[in-house]
Design a protein around this nucleic acid. Sequence first.
DNA 1: TCCTACGATGGACTCAATCCAAGTCAATAC
DNA 2: GTATTGACTTGGATTGAGTCCATCGTAGGA
Lengths: 138, 138
Amino acid sequence: MSDLLERLRGRGWRMTAQRRVVAEVLDGEHVHFTADEVLARATARLPEISRATVYNTLGELVSLGEVVEVATDGRAKRYDPNAHHPHHHLVCSHCGAIRDVHPTGDPLAALPTSERFGFTIREAEVTYWGLCPACTGT
Amino acid sequence: MSDLLERLRGRGWRMTAQRRVVAEVLDGEHVHFTADEVLARATARLPEISRATVYNTLGELVSLGEVVEVATDGRAKRYDPNAHHPHHHLVCSHCGAIRDVHPTGDPLAALPTSERFGFTIREAEVTYWGLCPACTGT
DNA sequence: TCCTACGATGGACTCAATCCAAGTCAATAC
DNA sequence: GTATTGACTTGGATTGAGTCCATCGTAGGA
């Protein structure tokens, strides 16, 4: 899965040290970081990188479709590098941890025309809420 | 549907002018206000009400289960007074407008045990994204 | 190697939401 | 009706996430 950089280069994305570091952080681990966590990890590799650059780069990766923005609740947005496999999310209501899940069927099909109110619907997003194994005990 | 105040009183909720006004704002119209919109409408009826009180009251209504907090994307949270009829949401990605919808079937059933990763799942929340009739043209 | 348009910087700013110490008042008891 | 009291309200300060912008730096083409 480590060809994110190749893909970006292939698309004519201007490569800079900062952008490479952000892409590497996202590509490296399959967790869902907040922008601040990305910043922290990027800073570890390239100390002078700025917050604005991290936001710019994340925003660009999102609009390129390489990364998906996940907004759960009022917490900070998280960035999901697993954009090429459609999936949904399972969120721990206690600690905020996120896992990718793949439910069966198509949720779009469950919405009859009479319930669409003239909207042009583009996608359905399913979030499952619960307690992760670590938080179940507490 | 205007018995929200009755229900609250019945539950021993301490009634104050501020709380009544907030409850009335939510009860009156079936749209999904942001906290600021609630504050604006509450202020129109009771000019000296403070922002903190609106947040406190909204938070309390949420934990009483009388109102549902809807967080879509990075925008401000919205408050949905239609808490007694389970439903999902249709959001306009352009203007942020929200409508309640009732898809068929149970999204929880679509998640096989093998995809639950030991989580204790409490609920599934489906958000449909699209453009509302007013924004489709632009 | 040189140019230059695109990208990065960082500090100020916005916006939503929360905190807190002091003041107020609804509901209960008398 | 009055006194009491603990829960509620206030508003200004604060936090946290994210954006803006004028200026500086540099990747990549000529």
